[in-house]
Design a protein around this nucleic acid. Structure first.
Lengths: 191, 191
DNA sequence: CCGATTTCCTAATAACCCTAGACTATAGCT
DNA sequence: AGCTATAGTCTAGGGTTATTAGGAAATCGG
């Protein structure tokens, strides 16, 4: 009986792939086990529970998204950086809808694992870096960071849920929203 | 054996209450049936499936949220309306976290039921109304509507997920973001 | 090569979703 | 009041899932 060579990371990755294909809510222990050619019970040697698995998928997604954004904004500043950041965010959500929804659930897993995960923390730090050229001081900077993150998340989330099924292409609105955010940042604090 | 007096609406409402108390993902047919003092199978006379029930909760939430917003912005215009709208949105999400998350899932239920539901459609229309005083023309108006909705949804969603666990109170950033959006709208289109 | 550990399995329990078919309360009709 | 039709509820049961317990086999450190 050859071993399947499971690890926590492989289980997580399989779950993430499944999430992108069939939606996060259909990621079950059974489905992941089936795809890995293994019995359900075997997964519990690597993952504590289904909720734990979902949390790990969320952390994986946060890491991947952070890396993409970091690459996108490297060597850019100002509006250039803003647009690159936002597009990287949106494209990650498009490319990996299941993983992206995983990032929306409150993480309720092993705190030690969360502490070791650099993704979420670095993601916020990157947002601060991206705004550097706008030269904001605290607490304005934090407010601006939160506005950016809220808008990016809200837009991609509503778009994914089919909220923009109107006539006007979502793409056009997206470009316009980025223009607006740039204008806002250059005139911060709002008068 | 007295009848329990079930209806689709009563089942939906019970599910919604449960969602707010224990989270939407823990709303099960069994749990709803238990709360109603009824067997699981009895629910299927009123609701097609669990997914159908979730969809109905989403529609209920959309209706309720729309009503709250409509009351909030009645008789207001300009920034006054903007702030009232946004606060009503955020407070609904705070008061009914389970129902609010239900509104985020793509609705995949009986199209006839969706067509009869006025909530989601009216919600978008209300956003247009709220922006009336800013006197925008299409397609700028649609872009602005989408930006508003994205930001409101994104902020409340991130806040609910614990994304603003920083030092600065989320409330302060919220107020500042609304200032920013108002400034943006008065200078639209962004230069 | 041996003992310890890890990996994976079988087996079992409990919860859950959902269907089919039987039964019963209620409303309308005569 | 009785009869009938409808609709509301239940019992029974099949299938899936999450999770635990304990056993066997592959792997690894010495």
């Amino acid at each position: 009986m050859a071993r399947a060579g499971l690890t926590a990371d492989r289980v997580t990755l399989t779950g993430a792939e499944l999430a992108d294909e069939v939606g996060l809510e259909h990621v079950t222990m059974s489905a992941v086990a089936r795809r890995l050619g293994v019995k359900d019970a075997s997964l519990y040697a690597h993952v504590r529970s289904l909720e734990d698995l979902r949390g790990r998928i969320a952390l994986l997604a946060a890491d991947e998204k952070t890396i993409r954004i970091a690459e996108a904004i490297a060597g850019r500043a100002g509006k250039d950086a803003l647009v690159a950041y936002a597009n990287a965010w949106r494209e990650y959500a498009r490319d990996h809808p299941g993983r992206y929804t995983a990032t929306q659930i409150p993480i309720r897993i092993d705190p030690e694992l969360v502490a070791r995960a650099t993704g979420p923390r670095r993601a916020v730090e990157l947002t601060y870096s991206m705004l550097r050229a706008y030269a904001l001081d605290e607490p304005d900077l934090t407010d601006a960071v939160r506005l950016m993150r809220s808008t990016f998340h809200g837009f991609t989330s509503l778009e994914a849920a089919g909220g923009f099924a109107h006539s006007r292409p979502a793409e056009d609105s997206w470009v316009r929203c980025l223009d607006a955010l740039h204008t806002l940042l250059t005139h911060w604090p709002p008068s």
